[in-house]
């Protein structure tokens, strides 16, 4: 299908965005990487009157470290995320996630801001930012506000973004020597949306005990699912087979997956349990010693 007719405006600054939004109201849609929006336009699922191209706005670009915080501009493309040394050092989970995101052509265009704003429940980056306890910086004509990632995703393809806001950046607490993270998923083919996935982050103390575990599942609900029960089952425990089994058992109450084209809810529950063991096993003393 062909796109419906719409106008195109390029914004050079955030002020341009606020002005164009004021002019066009709800008919204005932001476009950055366009990897989701342009497809939905071709499907005629939405008919905006104007696309506002934000890719030239300098304020939304760049990856920097400020103190113990890694700030990732919303326009950072997936491919950039995957090769940025600061990301690799301070938020290795994000770098590890990149190869799972679709295919190279899509990674070359898609942006982290776009992925978070779209909030696809099977996407990797929303789960990663929740697992990393990141903060989203939202900009509007009134200024900036910060929202914890876990508060940002509010429902199926729904977020805490207000109509006059956009995502300016993501702030991630920089990893410490105690930090451990992993992303695992099961997809039919490489690059497909996950049937089920897990972005996990935790700290391992010198005593081998787990603190601040955050197991975030994707592809199993309306958005990234922070598994409170499974995470709690690990808190303060020495990581061993028993702790992993306890997390798997607790998971039953954490997720309530829908069925989809790939299978019934029970399949997703099963895969989530399998992924829990696969992700956490990486941090077992024997596995860490071997790597």
């Amino acid at each position: 299908m062909k796109w419906p007719a719409f106008a195109y405006e390029r914004a050079s600054t955030l002020q341009d965005v606020w002005r164009l939004r004021a002019e066009h109201g709800e008919g204005a849609r932001l476009v950055a990487g366009g990897q989701t929006l342009l497809a939905t336009l071709a499907f005629r699922l939405s008919e905006p009157s104007v696309l506002v191209d934000i890719t030239r706005i300098e304020a939304l670009r760049g990856v920097t470290v400020q103190g113990s915080t890694l700030r990732i501009g919303a326009l950072t493309r997936h491919a950039e995320l995957g090769r940025d040394p600061l990301v690799a050092r301070h938020a290795p989970l994000l770098a590890e996630a990149v190869p799972y995101i679709a295919h190279p052509a899509i990674r070359n265009r898609g942006t982290i801001g776009g992925s978070l704003a779209y909030a696809d429940p099977a996407a990797e980056l929303p789960a990663c930012v929740v697992a990393l306890d990141a903060t989203l910086v939202l900009a509007s004509p009134a200024g900036e506000r910060r929202v914890a990632a876990r508060e940002f995703f509010t429902g199926l393809l729904e977020t805490a973004l207000k109509p006059d806001e956009l995502i300016a950046a993501v702030e991630v607490p920089a990893a410490t020597p105690a930090s451990r993270s992993a992303i695992v998923e099961v997809a039919r083919r490489s690059g497909d949306y996950a049937m089920a996935g897990l972005a996990a982050s935790l700290s391992l103390g010198a005593d081998g005990r787990v603190s601040a575990p955050r197991l975030v599942y994707f592809g199993v609900g309306n958005g990234p699912v922070l598994a409170a029960g499974a995470s709690a089952a690990l808190e303060g425990k020495a990581l061993d087979a028993g702790a992993i089994a306890a997390a798997q058992a607790a998971l039953a109450r954490d997720i309530d997956p829908p069925s989809d084209l790939h299978g019934p809810p029970e399949m997703k529950r099963h895969l989530a349990r399998v992924l829990t063991a696969r992700a956490l096993s990486r941090f077992l003393p024997a596995a860490e010693a071997a790597s």
Partner: peptide, 12 residues
Amino acid sequence: TPARILAALGRI
């Protein structure tokens, strides 16, 4: 599919 193989294995 994974679902059919897992079902055959009695895992789901």
